[in-house]
């Protein structure tokens, strides 16, 4: 009888431990399913004259694929960092203008600057759903063999670049593409 009277206490202690651990997790962070999987094949139309790119353009090199949109306010936060990275020519950055009107995306790049080697439009989320995009901005890092190696959810800040992405890009460049 004494033992059974302590069961509710024990259960609540377990629940409490679970909730405390749960507080340390971010429910928004989804694990990416595509890590180490090949980049899906795609061919995105241009948002302005001359642009657009396909999976073939990205093949054979370490590259960043950045999902952005003119309606996305966090992309504005990320944008200056991307401009600096583009100027430093550390790795090519491809832009995916997601769920956006081509002219809005193009105007946005004219206004704030264009960090991308090429930009394609993904109005119907074809590529976004292939990649498992849940919001903008998101950035995917592709290695020389065309596999996705990393997914950044949310803006790339200078800190994220210096601590995570730059070392990864450096090590990926050491790998020999197969």
């Amino acid at each position: 009888m004494r033992f059974s009277a302590a069961i509710p206490f024990a259960l609540m202690a377990l629940i409490g431990a679970g909730l405390a651990l749960g507080l340390t997790r971010d429910p928004r962070q989804l694990p990416s399913m595509l890590i180490d999987r090949p980049l899906p094949a795609f061919d995105l139309p241009a948002i302005a004259n001359g642009g657009g790119f396909s999976s073939a353009d990205v093949a054979g090199k370490v590259a960043l694929i950045n999902v952005f949109a003119s309606w996305c306010s966090a992309c504005r936060v990320e944008h200056p960092t991307l401009m600096r990275l583009a100027a430093a020519k550390r790795a090519p950055i491809y832009g995916v203008d997601w769920k956006d009107k081509a002219e809005d995306g193009a105007a946005w790049l004219r206004r704030y600057g264009d960090p991308y080697v090429a930009t394609g439009l993904d109005f119907e989320s074809r590529l976004a759903i292939e990649l498992g995009v849940t919001g903008a901005p998101e950035t995917y890092i592709v290695d020389k063999s065309g596999r996705i190696r990393y997914k950044q959810i949310g803006p790339i800040t200078d800190e994220v670049w210096a601590e995570t992405i730059e070392p990864l890009v450096a090590s990926l460049e050491q790998e020999t593409g197969s």
Binding site: A5, A6, F9, M12, G16, A20, L23
Partner: peptide, 25 residues
Amino acid sequence: RGVFILAILLGASMGALALYAWRAP
């Protein structure tokens, strides 16, 4: 806030349930 409410929740429920385990029998 999350930590504070969790502390209230656990303080109240575990305190009461400990009392229960002790006194209810």
